[in-house]
Design a protein around this nucleic acid. Structure first.
Length: 586
RNA sequence: GCGCCCGUAGCUCAGCUGGAUAGAGUAUCGGCCUCCGAAGCCGAGGGUCGUGGGUUCGAAUCCCGCCGGGCGCACCA
């Protein structure tokens, strides 16, 4: 409906005589917004005010000119000029009634559109290092990314969801050596576990799997393994030096092939766990992309070569640098180190390159706020490789603080003392977790109150919204128990009987849904959808309390039930985009 | 020191591509169940939008300074 008004206004704008408003002053697009005060109609446009500024003319005069040129439309009952020069639109009740009919007709499709057709968006999110189970911070990324992807799809974009697996590099070696050491313990070896190793229970479980697969084949005596190694941190040494030496020792003792087997087993087990965890959370991916594959298939070398060829790379102090300062970065970045090892940044450049090669027109990265320093250099890489600057978008997700009984829980992957996503889901349920994670703007720190999330009361928005949905189902059950039938078509014909303020309010709210979806998608703002659903539920509960639905007058009854069912449909569709269920009973 | 995010009601937060008297929830106080689910509804009080300037018809919103909080500034991943 908003788009209709925008269309009409655009036509009126085009028809304005050149001498009144020169074409040059019309660059600003037409903006229509929902009004806060019903006295201002349903929608308002500030077009005249903006034109007035550009042409230094009286805004009310311009508004009158626009109004005269506005094409008539049956959906619009009244247009008036108010205040400084706002143009207020009052929709006809017929337009609203038709929209309610559309809700019932479209059902699960209601609110979806094709405004974004033609754009293929790749959304990369979570991408947590496969060195342990997901924790509550990753959960926010998962919920946010999945909801945004759903929203983008709902407006017609072609969406691909991708998880980037950081399966290369030192962290993976530390993971492998940690698993091998646990395996040695199972074999009966005794030693001090390295301070920098991964020490969660899941590592021991991988050790057991390793033992089951390899028997004693990879057993080596602890005394020899640790002989003459640089001291670990507790002994006054450097934990990084210690573990690197331990990795080298492991490779030497069991051979590179076996080390790789250990690493791959650990990777498979952990990734399988992550995949299952996310899947249970309703978060799925179209592609699990391996970082290792980028070096294996030469993508990293190709990307580096491309940068060298285009003159954006140079050799200094034995290392190859990318001249990212050409694109606004504060310093140039190393791609290939003096020792010949490629940096993580080299992989990332290759990855961006790879994404472009795969033909996505838009790349959406969802990162933790601690990665913000990376944006400039990666965009620089993309532009240097010939990618369009605007196709690169990063959304940062701020941290999650978990509260349980007023106590702030700590999160550290290394210590093993962290709250996993799985634990959180088990405690509060998937629905509450999904909703709570996206309830706040992504660039706002999130205080996740587990007690509130489990509360079965009105201070918990999950239950509040779901309850409205269940209530409609309950009314329909009640109708059946009383031996009455619902005639939706009859109800639509009688929507004119809905004249109560709560009903009119609810109708307007329901009809706003498609616009909300578009707005949320454009702004990547699922939290706006949560707020809308909360408001919608509120309007419904208010209407429910004020008026009986199951009344004698069959026309009124059918009309009220139609509105209730339309509300239910929108709640179900909205929750669906957020990955939250819409139960019939609670 | 430089960069990014945040600062709005007692608390948790919307509103931020400038628009009409700044909104929710919660907490506090007061009402509503012989009636479709009270997991609900209705009402009241509560604000120098961190602060000082600027831009203009109009600023919580844009610009600059300052204060406070978070995060980042590697030939780590």
């Amino acid at each position: 409906m908003k788009t209709l008004i925008e269309k009409l206004l655009t036509q009126a704008l085009a028809a304005l005589p050149e001498d009144l408003v020169p074409a040059a002053a019309r660059v600003a697009g037409v903006e229509v917004e929902n009004t806060r005060d019903p006295q201002h109609g349903d929608f308002a446009a500030n077009l005249a005010l903006r034109l007035a500024k550009a042409t230094r003319q009286n805004p009310r005069k311009l508004a009158e000119a626009l109004l005269r040129l506005l094409p008539p439309d049956p959906a619009i009952a009244k247009v008036e000029i108010a205040g400084a020069g706002f143009i207020n639109f009052f929709l006809s009740t017929g337009a609203y009634h038709a929209e309610i009919g559309k809700v019932l007709h479209d059902g699960g499709q209601y609110g979806r559109s094709l405004v974004g057709a033609g754009l293929s968006v790749q959304v990369e999110f979570v991408s947590a290092n496969p060195t342990g189970p997901l924790h509550v911070g990753h959960g926010r990324h998962a919920a946010f990314g999945a909801s945004v992807a759903n929203l983008l799809e709902a407006v017609g974009h072609r969406v691909e969801r991708e998880y980037y697996i950081n399966d290369a590099g030192r962290q993976m070696e530390i993971l492998a050596v940690s698993a091998w050491l646990r395996y040695l313990e199972i074999c009966g070896e005794r030693f001090a576990f390295p301070a920098n190793g991964y020490r969660g229970d899941y590592i021991a479980a991988i050790g057991e799997r390793l033992f089951a697969a390899e028997g004693l084949m990879l057993r080596r005596g602890a005394a020899e393994v640790f002989k003459d190694l640089p001291h670990d941190e507790p002994q006054g040494g450097d934990k990084d030096v210690h573990i690197d030496a331990l990795i080298a020792r492991a490779r030497a003792f069991i051979g590179d092939a076996a080390f790789r087997r250990v690493l791959d087993l650990a990777l498979t087990v952990i990734l399988g766990d992550i995949r299952e965890d996310l899947s249970e959370f309703g978060v799925t991916f179209d592609c699990w992309f391996s970082e290792r594959s980028l070096s294996d298939d030469g993508s990293v070398n190709r990307a580096i070569a491309a940068l060298k060829k285009s003159g954006h790379a140079y050799l200094k102090d034995g290392a190859w640098w990318f001249k990212s300062t050409d694109y606004g970065d504060e310093k140039d970045r190393v791609m290939v180190r003096e020792n010949g090892v490629k940096t993580y940044f080299a992989s990332d450049i290759a990855y961006v390159f790879n994404k472009l090669e795969r033909g996505f027109s838009h790349l959406l990265y969802i990162w933790g706020a601690d990665h913000h320093g990376y944006i400039t250099r990666l965009r620089a890489g993309l532009v240097a490789l010939g990618g369009p600057k605007d196709s690169f978008e990063v959304r940062l997700v701020q941290f999650v603080s978990l509260f349980r009984g007023g106590e702030k829980a700590q999160m550290s992957t290394r210590s093993g003392e962290f709250v996993t996503l799985r634990e959180l889901r088990k405690e509060v349920g998937n629905d509450a977790a999904r909703l709570f994670y996206v309830m706040r703007s992504n660039d706002q720190h999130l205080d996740f109150d587990m007690e509130l999330a489990t509360a079965r009361s009105n201070d918990n928005p999950v239950y509040y919204i779901q309850y409205a949905h269940a209530r409609v189902a309950s009314v329909m059950r009640q109708l059946q128990e009383r031996g009455l039938a619902h005639d939706a078509k009859h109800g639509l014909a009688c929507l004119g009987k809905l004249v109560e303020p709560q009903e009119l309010e609810l109708i307007k709210r329901v009809c706003a849904y498609p616009e909300i979806v578009k707005q949320c998608a454009a702004q990547r703002a699922p939290h706006t959808l949560v707020h809308y659903l909360r408001d919608l539920a509120n309007d419904f509960h208010a209407n429910y309390s004020a008026h009986q639905f199951i009344v004698e007058d069959s026309g009124l009854r059918d009309a009220r039930l139609d509105l209730a069912l339309a509300t239910q449909t929108v709640i179900r569709n909205g929750l669906g985009l957020l990955g939250v269920s819409a139960p019939e009973t609670m």
